[in-house]
């Protein structure tokens, strides 16, 4: 069970990194996530059933998320729609798109097809049990993604993204179109989210169009929990704490699921718990701010 927490935490941390990118760096609260997460899952499932190589499937999932994010940013940029509404619009449209991708079905099991994980298990069968092979595989995947993101955020473009969330006027005075940056940023973020969805589908053994319900709350709660663990202004620490926060969040959810019945809690209450976690984190941050005498 313990490795289950870690594997799930690692898979969802890819999504949380996407949420961190939009919410924290771009200051663009993006709700597309609820649609792009299952989008990654259904694209992956459709690819696997169609006999497409899993790696190509991952790439297609990423591109799907990229497009979804770009659509949200374009609605926001061109029609001057507030970002929350733009995200909700795309998310709602994606619900139908996702059903189309699954050929008019609501879910698709992946039990008898070869996934990336079954391939990994085939290679490692002789050395380690499959659950630990999955754990090692996802540690490697998340490590690579984290390193790539860290590198991206110290490039010129990455730095400008940081400035955009801080001070949009500064970016415009610099001769850069903020609209183009938002298109790229929200796109990349949703690409990561879809990638996370693609891995989640393979790990759980099915793709479901309702996989994304409330996922943005999961992501946000993970980001906020992480912020309690470490303090820094270094990007490598910021991404690390998102990953740790997600694992912690998943651990809390596991505890709720397995031991919650002692206090009459059912799995249906978990979304309530996630919401309360966010409210508590916000409250604690405000409280700290008041103590310091500044509003942060």
């Amino acid at each position: 069970m313990i490795e289950g927490i870690f594997v799930e935490g690692l898979i969802y941390s890819i999504m949380a990194l996407g949420v961190f990118f939009t919410f924290r760096i771009l200051d663009f609260p993006d709700l597309t996530v609820d649609g792009s997460f299952p989008m990654g899952a259904v694209i992956m499932a459709a690819c696997l059933h169609g006999g497409i190589h899993p790696l190509t499937g991952l790439l297609l999932s990423f591109c799907g998320g990229l497009t979804a994010g770009a659509v949200t940013a374009a609605i926001h940029n061109k029609l001057k729609v507030p970002h929350l509404l733009a995200g909700i619009l795309t998310m709602t449209m994606l619900y139908s798109v996702n059903i189309r991708i699954l050929s008019n079905r609501a879910n698709l099991p992946l039990l008898r097809v070869e996934t990336l994980l079954t391939r990994v298990h085939d290679y490692t069968r002789e050395f380690i049990p499959p659950e630990y092979a999955s754990l090692l595989f996802f540690i490697l995947v998340v490590f690579i993604i984290k390193k790539l993101l860290d590198l991206f955020f110290i490039t010129d473009m990455g730095l400008v993204f940081g400035a955009l969330g801080n001070n949009e006027q500064m970016v415009r005075v610099q001769g850069i179109n903020p609209a183009t940056l938002k298109l790229i940023g929200v796109g990349l973020s949703n690409g990561l989210v879809a990638l996370s969805g693609a891995f989640a589908a393979q790990y759980q053994g099915f793709a479901d169009i309702n996989l994304g319900q409330g996922i943005v709350v999961t992501g946000l709660a993970s980001v906020m929990l992480g912020e309690f663990l470490l303090k820094s202004n270094k990007i490598s620490v910021l991404t690390l704490r998102v990953i740790l926060g997600t694992i912690l969040f998943k651990a809390i959810m596991y505890l709720g699921r397995y031991y919650g019945y002692y206090i009459n809690m059912t799995p249906n209450d978990l979304k309530l718990i996630a919401g309360i976690l966010i409210i508590l984190s916000l409250g604690a941050t405000n409280f700290k701010g008041i103590k310091k005498g500044s509003r942060s």
């Binding site: 010129d156 473009m157 400035a163 801080n166 001070n167 610099q174 001769g175």
Partner: peptide, 24 residues
């Protein structure tokens, strides 16, 4: 300036005008 970024990051952003590519 961008408050939540370091001095050198701020200077890097503004030292060249125009679109920035992902190069370090």
């Amino acid at each position: 300036t961008a408050s939540n970024m370091t001095l050198e990051d701020n200077m890097m952003i503004t030292c060249k005008k125009g679109f920035k590519w992902p190069v370090i």
